[in-house]
């Protein structure tokens, strides 16, 4: 529980952060809330040579509604998202997810951008981003969420690239996010998110594979008029969930179906 030595610098702007990352080289890491990075450092599972602290990059802490999208700055904390009236009005599912992240201390520190950059399979926001076709904006480009996540803990981000913003479509309609977990503060063993749009239901799944999954087969069945029960039966199609001490892959597939149905029932 003792981290290895690293250098540390503070950035006050996106430009500074990127410059510091570039100078520090390929083994540098960005630290924002430290929600996942601090445990990894303490366990020495991650041994970066340099940490660039972006907590001072105030320009990335915002929630901006703009036309039919909601732009959220990467440094926005979970607790801010959970409480934000703008988020509750335009994308209440994001507020619902934010309120279920970790415990109050973690929600006060952890950031939206950190979740995207870290790309944990159990992260909640990536599910929302993938199912709603959100866009991730970095210091140099815009990437569709479905293209952003490549594998477990792996994104398209370059070593010196910083997540700056996530652009979500507004979606004020019926929605629900269900996390199945052993303890209130745990990550989801499996999570299921549903959002009603004018064009039909969007369905996403958390922690059923290396990256967040959009359950297109469920969406298609719903569009074709299937009942929630029938549609949710397709939730585990093409999933390759992990087996670990918490749950077997079979059990995760089963949970994907059950949670999808329950989320649809509770949202409608």
């Amino acid at each position: 529980m003792i981290p290895a030595a690293f250098k540390y610098s503070k950035a006050g702007s996106v430009r500074e952060a990127v410059a510091q990352l570039r100078e520090a080289g390929p083994e540098a890491k960005v630290i924002a809330g430290g929600q996942s990075l601090i445990p990894l450092l303490r366990l020495r599972l991650s041994q970066p040579t340099h940490l660039v602290d972006v907590n001072g990059v105030r320009e990335l802490d915002y929630v901006h509604p703009e036309g039919d999208v909601l732009r959220v700055g990467a440094l926005t904390r979970h607790s801010t998202l959970a409480r934000s009236e703008l988020v509750q009005r335009h994308l209440p599912l994001l507020a619902e997810m934010a309120a279920q992240v970790g415990d109050p201390q973690i929600r006060a520190r952890g950031t939206l951008g950190g979740v995207f950059a870290h790309a944990d399979a159990a992260g909640d926001y990536p599910t929302l981003a993938v199912m709603l076709d959100a866009t991730i904006v970095t210091d140099r480009r815009r990437v569709a969420a479905r293209d952003f996540f490549q594998h477990l803990f792996t994104t398209v981000l370059a070593e010196d690239e910083l997540v700056c913003e996530v652009v979500f479509p507004m979606a004020p309609g019926p929605h629900r996010y269900l996390k199945f977990r052993r303890r209130l503060y745990d990550w989801a063993i499996v999570g299921a998110a549903v959002q009603k749009l004018d064009s039909g239901w969007r369905v996403g799944l958390t922690h059923v594979g290396p990256t967040a999954v959009r359950a297109a087969a469920v969406e298609a069945r719903l569009l074709a008029g299937a009942t929630f029960q029938e549609a949710a039966g397709a939730a585990a199609e093409e999933l390759d969930p992990p087996s670990d001490v918490r749950a077997s892959a079979d059990y995760r597939r089963h949970l994907a179906r059950v949670l999808t149905r329950r989320a649809l029932e509770q949202a409608a």
Partner: peptide, 8 residues
């Protein structure tokens, strides 16, 4: 008596 054990 974890959920996965009971489910099985």
């Amino acid at each position: 008596a974890s959920p996965d054990r009971l489910w099985r």
